[in-house]
Simulated assay, not measured.
Amino acid sequence: MDQGPVTQPRTGLEWRPGGEARRIERITPREEAVGLSFDGRPHTVLMATPADLQELAIGFAVTEGLAGRDDILDVTERRTAEGVLIDLTLSPAARGRRARPRGLEGRSSCGLCGVQRLADAVRPLPRVISDRSFRHEAVHRATSAIGELQTLGRLTRATHAAAFADASGTLLLAREDVGRHNALDKLAGALLRGGVDASQGFVVVTSRCSFEMVEKTARIGCPMIVAVSAPTDLAIRKAEEAGVTLIALARADGHAVFSCAERLMAEDHAHV
């Protein structure tokens, strides 16, 4: 489905110390309401960039633990005056899974908006079983290259990206969105739709690493997440629980490993 343009030009007044205000034009990313439903039952509304929305829905369903990829039988998309409605038809095996009840819309800055109970906010994670190891050089290669795939980010300076790299650090897929969680869900959906084995590579995100980013990484069976910004304490604890290697502060001058450092091997011992 054609979701229309993902950017909108806007004008503003720019002020600088010692100078006069001047009119400027900025290209801004669109942010739109996206309603997700399962078997016709409304579940939540996300605020997202209107692109790759079916992948967003698939990734959300899997990273929320509502369904496995094989449980998603069909995806339909319908535009309304208020936004876009995406409905997933699930297999009978998935219909009995309890979703985290949500009472509010999911804002682009929040991965758990509307979750109503504390017990539903921080759930036990599946443990990622993977013997894949990676070189530090692969992490550096991936983080150095992600900017080239941020088409919308370069244009607007207002979006996040999530990418998937193979063991060598070559980026295979990237998705962008105004919300960091949405970008990762879109990436998850693209991996699942494309039949890419997430256990053989790692995720790179252009944001901070909060615990729900670790949760989404673990639920697609990916053994490592790399963030360009800092992690939270809970993200580190959940990464340790799930057996996910968490690398953060990944910049041109290096990176820091906060969990499961044994997966980062010296160059001559790396499993590639």
Results as ranks from 00 to 15, higher is better:
residue 209 C to V: 14
residue 49 T to K: 08
residue 173 L to Q: 06
residue 271 H to D: 10
residue 253 D to P: 00
residue 60 F to N: 04
residue 198 A to P: 03
residue 12 G to D: 08
residue 159 T to M: 06
residue 56 L to M: 05
residue 178 V to F: 06
residue 107 R to F: 12
residue 143 T to N: 03
residue 177 D to G: 09
residue 84 V to G: 09
residue 143 T to I: 15
residue 254 G to I: 10
residue 184 L to N: 04
residue 212 E to A: 07
residue 183 A to D: 06
residue 99 A to V: 09
residue 29 P to F: 15
residue 192 L to C: 05
residue 153 G to L: 00
residue 60 F to K: 04
residue 207 S to K: 01
residue 223 P to E: 10
residue 22 R to A: 14
residue 128 V to K: 00
residue 141 R to P: 00
residue 255 H to Y: 13
residue 39 D to F: 13
residue 147 G to W: 15
residue 160 H to S: 06
residue 109 S to R: 11
residue 244 V to F: 05
residue 214 V to G: 03
residue 71 D to M: 05
residue 115 V to L: 05
residue 272 V to L: 12
residue 49 T to C: 05
residue 43 H to C: 06
residue 7 T to C: 12
residue 153 G to N: 03
residue 57 A to N: 00
residue 61 A to R: 01
residue 11 T to V: 14
residue 67 A to M: 13
residue 6 V to Q: 11
residue 167 A to L: 05
residue 208 R to Y: 15
residue 206 T to Y: 12
residue 174 A to Q: 11
residue 65 G to P: 01
residue 141 R to N: 03
residue 148 E to R: 12
residue 20 E to C: 07
residue 111 G to A: 14
residue 173 L to W: 00
residue 178 V to P: 01
residue 4 G to K: 09
residue 9 P to C: 12
residue 64 E to T: 11
residue 57 A to S: 02
residue 151 T to M: 14
residue 133 S to V: 11
residue 113 C to I: 02
residue 200 Q to R: 15
residue 43 H to F: 12
residue 39 D to C: 11
residue 236 I to M: 10
residue 240 E to D: 13
residue 121 A to E: 12
residue 74 D to Y: 07
residue 267 E to R: 11
residue 124 P to N: 09
residue 59 G to W: 00
residue 67 A to V: 08
residue 120 D to I: 14
residue 91 S to V: 13
residue 263 R to D: 01
residue 149 L to S: 10
residue 85 L to I: 14
residue 229 S to P: 04
residue 174 A to P: 00
residue 244 V to S: 01
residue 83 G to T: 05
